[in-house]
Design a protein around this nucleic acid. Structure first.
Length: 164
DNA sequence: GCCAACGTTGGC
DNA sequence: GCCAACGTTGGC
């Protein structure tokens, strides 16, 4: 399968694991574990490829939004944290012979020059089709189109308070 | 295979 | 801290 590079948005709570944590890892690389949602598992399995790029999004925090960029650096592989009873996301229905959950490795690329807030993303008509801004969306990993990706990078260069 | 109950996510 | 929206579970 040789499809074009894809773009993603991946949420994490900064108090639990934020972009500064990733940036501080050896080689800026860490596995994105703890996904226990089948839609996301399937994205990992079927659509994630090394070389894809992803926005790092801070959720469940005072001002949620996009804070940086990372790169996917592995194929999907079994999430071993599901095997360990001491882990928060232990799942007794997953075992090494029949792993139910997958993860990918990601590498820190850079912080954005500024936080692009969820409020801004919601207010921008060009981004109305993003899963992120749609009602009741609960995916913690979701696709971003190339057009949306570029648009958000353009927003980075603008003043967040009001555009243009 | 339906669907109520429950747990989780995550914005506000 | 509240609660809407959603996914999952399990009884039937």
């Amino acid at each position: 399968m040789d499809t074009a590079m894809a773009y993603w948005l991946m949420k994490s709570e900064p108090d639990v694991y934020g972009i500064d944590h990733l940036a501080a890892e050896p080689d800026g690389t860490e596995h994105w574990d703890g996904i226990r949602n089948y839609q996301v598992r399937n994205l990992f399995r079927d659509r994630f490829q090394p070389g894809d790029q992803a926005f790092f999004y801070h959720s469940n925090t005072k001002v949620p939004g996009i804070v940086g960029i990372m790169e996917v650096v592995s194929e999907a592989y079994p999430d071993h944290t599901a095997f360990d009873p001491d882990e928060k996301y232990y799942d007794p229905k997953s075992d090494p012979d029949h792993p139910r959950w997958l993860m990918v490795d990601v590498r820190y690329i850079r912080h954005l020059d500024r936080l692009i807030t969820l409020a801004e993303l919601k207010a921008d008509p060009a981004l109305a089709d993003m899963r992120l801004v749609q009602r009741g969306n609960r995916l913690s990993v979701m696709p971003v189109s190339e057009v949306e990706w570029q648009h958000i990078l353009d927003m980075e260069k603008q003043d967040g308070n009001d555009n243009r």
